[in-house]
Design a protein around this nucleic acid. Structure first.
Lengths: 322, 322
DNA sequence: AGGCTTCCGTCATACGTATCACCGATCGGT
DNA sequence: ACCGATCGGTGATACGTATGACGGAAGCCT
């Protein structure tokens, strides 16, 4: 571990004082350090490979220009794009983003990444409703807008309306809804959006987001006299379960049964037939949430936001049999 | 932004000096501070809600007890478990883990998380072969063991042998191999393991890990006179493409064609029939890699390691037709 | 010539912690 | 009774940076 050069080393090499180095490298030399001196400092810093010591800077400034992105798990289709969107916005403002996987059952923050060395938190889908990040500014993503923190959401209601419109346009009237049992808020919003579109002709079954469980729930919906001609699934994974149920009953998709998903994960195009679903603007969500968080850090109150998804019509939907 | 209490505040509250607070809270009070004083300090710290300032501590100690986990993307089935395994081992030694998504095309490290405030790097599947983390200790995961850094790998060769044994046991002789074109090392290792098991009776097609591309590659293998009775796919996603090809040709799985995957991602059980594949010990990999990295930080040279996967036989494999 | 600016920088200090060097008091041994 | 050791702590300092206060030199105006 060879010693890293410090600003003092740079100062010595450039023949100036440490303060000058700090000023120049911070870009505050305008009118206070003459151009040739600036150049000499920059040159010396470059030659020595100087990188400011973050610990010292953070200590001095009392701030870290780092925000935490909390995700329930690293494994999931949306978190990559969310990070990408958030990180880009953050970088443009000189902030870094640290990712912290935080399973729902993990209890309060513990890692030394969390309540310290962090200026704000971007919390994604904290199902348990854990919002206790000390008194750090928080922006929630994909969460109940009634929460005290600003909330940036996917417009799930709009997505459901798009799906409803698509199915209604194809001629479907009897709809089965495989509802994702995740949190009460999403459950209610999705249900209401669909119920508005198909008043009185909607049957529903709740299921966890799991293929086997969804298959059972789908069987329950399909195995009845007034069998729906289309199944609306709150998640692509649930749709995969619906596929299995249909095949078990000898029903052709989309001939005998239309199926829709939600999220447009990889699975959607791996299934046969390919799944009609709604693609979510994950990258924009990350960017919007980070923008909101940075505003919050500037003591402004950013408005909540809801970002529309995009209906991707593939081969799993068609007009009903008769 | 109310000021956080410092160790000096605690000292005042407990009626001792700041040094004593530091000693007590570091757990180095053995024989140097009498028990009742220790108790008083701890009590005062608790009452004030004191949390040591990490920036100051890092500055003083010159180390951060933080390592970086570099992943190519957040979206992927193995990174969650890898993180979990790594984080647990790290926590037991007082280290924190920061996740840094680093797409293959992103160039050298830039974020202020990277070459600074970090003591070591756990690099996962850096396809581009970027190993330049300054002079930080690095442990590679799932990478060519010929690299200078210690390497902790999934035993892909063993996994391929397991699959080969499974298929041979079922009676298959003509095997098609849908090889993942990711990096040269994996490509070679997988190919050799399979070639050893089926000398002379193996045909191969390379494909990116992508359903549509894999479908085309599978069609190329299946559309020939000596059609293989089984397709070995280097990735579950490739297997999904093989499923599509089989369906397009009217081939039943597993009746007319056996298919195997690799990784056991969610998709494997969402497909119909469910996919025979190899489950990788991702959590152990993370744990082993972190153990190796911590040894490296102690200036020991940890040995490379290769962790066996587990064959999961499902419904996509059966004896050949005749 | 004297005073007021402007220019170009330097000095000293503080952020909060961990640790090294001390130091007074008590106690046991001879 | 005096010495050495042990106990129980304190004081001072350094880590590397950013910044407010200061200040010499030169130029300009009156």
């Amino acid at each position: 571990m060879d010693k890293r050069p410090t600003s003092r080393d740079v100062a010595r090499a450039a023949g100036v004082s440490q303060s000058t180095v700090s000023i120049v490298l911070a870009g505050k030399a305008e009118g206070r350090v003459k151009p040739e001196t600036r150049q000499a400092v920059r040159e010396a810093a470059r030659r020595l490979g100087y990188r400011p010591n973050l610990a010292a800077r953070n200590l001095r400034l009392g701030r870290t220009r780092t925000v935490l992105l909390v995700v329930p798990t690293l494994t999931g289709p949306v978190f990559g794009p969310i990070y990408a969107g958030a990180a880009e916005v953050a970088a443009a403002r000189g902030f870094g983003v640290v990712v912290h996987p935080w399973p729902d059952d993990a209890g309060p923050a513990r890692s030394h990444v969390d309540t310290q060395a962090i200026e704000g938190v971007l919390a994604s889908s904290i199902v348990g409703g854990v919002t206790d990040f000390g008194d750090l500014p928080v922006v929630m993503m994909d969460s109940d807008p009634a929460a005290p923190a600003p909330t940036i959401n996917f417009d799930v209601a709009g997505g459901m309306r798009d799906i409803a419109g698509h199915l209604a346009g194809l001629g479907h009237r009897r709809i089965g809804h495989l509802a994702a049992a995740v949190d009460a808020w999403t459950f209610r919003v999705r249900g209401e959006a669909l119920a508005d579109a198909f008043p009185g002709s909607l049957i529903r079954e709740a299921t966890p987001i799991d293929v086997a469980a969804a298959r059972r729930a789908a069987l329950a919906l399909l195995d009845r006299p007034d069998r729906p001609s289309a199944l609306v699934c709150d998640d692509d994974l649930i749709a995969a379960g619906a596929y299995k149920a249909a095949r078990a009953l000898g029903l052709d998709i989309p001939g005998d049964l239309s199926v829709t998903g939600f999220d447009d994960v990889l699975l959607a195009t791996a299934l046969e037939p390919e799944l009609t679903t709604v693609r979510l603007p994950a990258e924009q969500l990350g960017a919007a949430a980070m923008t909101a968080l940075l505003e919050l850090l500037d003591d402004r109150r950013p408005p909540g936001l809801s970002l529309p998804g995009e209906l991707i019509a593939r081969q799993s939907t068609a007009p009903p049999a008769a």
